[in-house]
């Protein structure tokens, strides 16, 4: 699903955020990405989302070199990736329902079909009863679940998450991770960046460890 071939990323010509990354993620696999903050986890995810372009090497997603996408094709590429952010990135002036419906609105999905999928996604994260609430009325953990519902509402083949449990207590973090495992079980390729090593160790999935922009360990699930 994802292939990094000798990928490097420099910012401003000097600072090397990522160096010589070379790995593959199979379709349907669940992978953790770990490392200290500043190790390059976010940069790596931004490269996959094509928010940044590699300075060296190439990145293949679903067999296509994403660096060669025309700018006008990038939005259509991003629609195939579900992304969960640490700070949720919800829109605070609209309801939970409309936040989750946003990707479908962008795609122009029929309202009836959109409603069905939004409710299915909210049901999956256990927030169906809060669909008319505003994000501000929800707790941090609930907001993160809204973010996840939005990421999966158009059934992406690839789900990326950047520190999805960053601000949550251990129990909520475990709940969130369990959701990602559920999506992994139904065939979605999942990549989660996290520095919660204890939690990752319990979950037993392949783990890529970054250190100062280099891949220092690639451990298959024990």
């Amino acid at each position: 699903m994802i292939a990094f071939e000798h990928v490097g990323k420099r910012y401003g010509g000097r600072f090397e955020a990522l160096a010589n990354l070379d790995f593959r993620v199979r379709r349907g696999e669940m992978v953790f990405l770990t490392g200290h903050s500043g190790a390059g986890k976010s940069s790596l995810l931004r490269l996959i989302m094509r928010l940044e372009r590699p300075s060296r090497g190439r990145i293949l997603v679903a067999g296509h070199d994403i660096d060669r996408l025309h700018p006008s094709q990038v939005p259509f590429y991003r629609r195939q990736i579900g992304v969960v952010f640490q700070d949720h990135q919800l829109l605070y002036d609209r309801s939970i329902y409309h936040n989750v419906a946003l990707p479908l609105e962008i795609q122009g999905t029929e309202p009836r079909e959109a409603a069905r999928r939004v409710r299915a996604a909210l049901d999956k994260v256990g927030l169906l009863h809060r669909e008319q609430a505003l994000p501000i009325e929800l707790s941090g953990g609930e907001q993160q679940r809204v973010g996840i519902a939005r990421a999966v509402v158009n059934k992406p083949a690839l789900l990326l998450a950047d520190e999805p449990t960053g601000n949550l207590d251990p129990q909520l973090s475990a709940d969130i991770m369990a959701l990602f495992e559920d999506f992994h079980r139904i065939g979605t390729t999942v990549m989660v960046a996290s520095h919660d090593l204890a939690l990752i160790a319990r979950l037993r999935h392949r783990t890529l460890r970054l250190h100062q922009g280099r891949l220092v360990a690639d451990e298959e699930a024990a």
Binding site: M49, L51, S72, P75, Q89
Partner: peptide
Amino acid sequence: RQEIEVVTLIGATHAF
């Protein structure tokens, strides 16, 4: 601005 950033992240075209 925030709204624009979010919708761009999840695949909105410039026209949208």
